[in-house]
């Protein structure tokens, strides 16, 4: 069981608003999972090599050639609010 403060701290970092019920719910659930994963501490891993997940023949580079996106307005269409081709936020910033 995680403390209420710990859950609120994580929620703040993750920018998630939680209701009172949710706080209790996550205290329980997170606590349960964190207890379960403690089993990893028993394993000796000091000498393990670094995990690599990407195939060796993957090439991560591209040529420096600009390719404009077809219609940038498509990227604005999904915005909750926009104005004059900018994304618009309500009056929330100082």
């Amino acid at each position: 069981m995680l403390s209420r403060d710990e859950v609120l701290k994580i929620a703040r970092l993750a920018k998630l608003s939680l209701t009172e019920k949710e706080i209790e719910f996550y205290q329980q659930r997170l606590g349960r999972i964190l207890t379960y994963v403690e089993e990893l501490n028993a394993l000796a891993t000091a000498d393990t090599s670094v995990v690599r997940t990407i195939p060796k023949d993957a090439v991560a580079f591209r040529e420096d050639r600009p390719i404009p996106f077809g219609d940038v307005r498509e990227l604005l269409k999904n915005a909750p609010a926009s104005e004059a081709d900018s994304f618009l936020l309500p009056q929330v910033m100082e």
Binding site: S86, F87, L88, L89, P90, Q91, M93
Partner: peptide, 10 residues
């Protein structure tokens, strides 16, 4: 981001 009177433009 640019702040305007009615909000912020990004």
């Amino acid at each position: 981001s640019t702040h305007a009177s009615h909000g912020t433009l990004v």
